[in-house]
Amino acid sequence: MTNDERHPTDADTDNAAGHTGAHIAGKLAPRLTWSAVAGGPDQSGDANDRTFERHFPVGWYVGSYLLRFIEMDAAGNDDINGEFLAWENTIIVQAGSLDEAYGKIVSLAGRETIPYKGGMEAVPVQWMFEGVTELLPIYEPLEDGAESMWAKHDPVKLSELRRRTRSLIEIRARLSGETGA
């Protein structure tokens, strides 16, 4: 199968994955609006919108959600201009539809929002669920080498492309720093 047969064209993917620039992997994908994928602002339920229900071939989806960290007693936790530590987590879910996959991601993300006492001073803290940032069907069976996501990048200098890559040593160092190992 050629690359052209596997991946949608730019025109096909302009709306396929919302405003994020990520693209649906695998076979040619139907055009989706941002609202169809992520429950965006034009999700009116109107018969003319592009929201649809479709069975995707393998029943697996990859989705990301955003959490922000707060100290529960701190002022400004709802300040729209405030700055917060945030994590975007990407998970896979098995589901029979896009709607079911979205619901599972929201539910699983909700499990991460239980308040707890943080730090040496046992300060009440919580991760707040902000929403789903991405949801894409996976088109290939899950196995070594199965493509689950891809992204097209605008042309850049070769030096910039090479700066984006990481060696195994760099990946280990980053993971060690994150886990404290």
Rank of each mutant, 00 (worst) to 15 (best):
M1R: 15
D4C: 02
D10T: 09
D10E: 11
A11M: 10
A11S: 12
A11N: 13
D12G: 15
D12T: 00
T13G: 06
H23G: 04
A25Y: 02
A25M: 10
G26F: 05
P30H: 03
P30L: 01
P30Y: 01
L32R: 15
T33S: 14
S35E: 14
A36N: 14
A38F: 12
G39R: 15
D42W: 09
D42M: 10
S44K: 14
G45W: 09
A47Y: 09
A47R: 15
N48A: 10
N48Q: 12
T51H: 11
T51M: 10
F56K: 06
P57A: 04
P57G: 02
V58G: 00
G63C: 06
Y65R: 12
R68L: 01
R68K: 14
I70M: 02
E71Q: 12
D73M: 07
G76W: 06
N77D: 05
N77K: 09
D78E: 10
D78G: 03
D78Y: 02
F84L: 07
A86G: 13
A86T: 15
E88D: 06
N89Q: 10
Q94S: 14
G96T: 07
E100Q: 15
G103P: 03
G103E: 13
V106M: 05
V106Y: 02
S107N: 06
S107K: 15
L108T: 07
T113C: 09
I114T: 11
P115Q: 09
P115S: 08
M120C: 00
E121F: 02
V123C: 04
P124L: 04
V125D: 00
V125Y: 02
V125H: 11
V132S: 06
T133E: 04
E134I: 00
L136K: 11
L136R: 13
P137L: 01
P137T: 01
Y139P: 01
Y139D: 14
Y139A: 10
L142K: 13
D144L: 08
E147R: 11
S148R: 09
W150C: 07
A151S: 06
H153Q: 12
H153D: 03
D154I: 04
L158M: 10
E160A: 12
L161E: 10
R162S: 00
R162D: 05
R164I: 00
T165V: 02
R166K: 14
S167V: 00
I169E: 14
I171V: 09
R172I: 01
A173D: 14
A173I: 05
S176G: 15
G177A: 12
T179R: 14
G180D: 03
G180I: 01
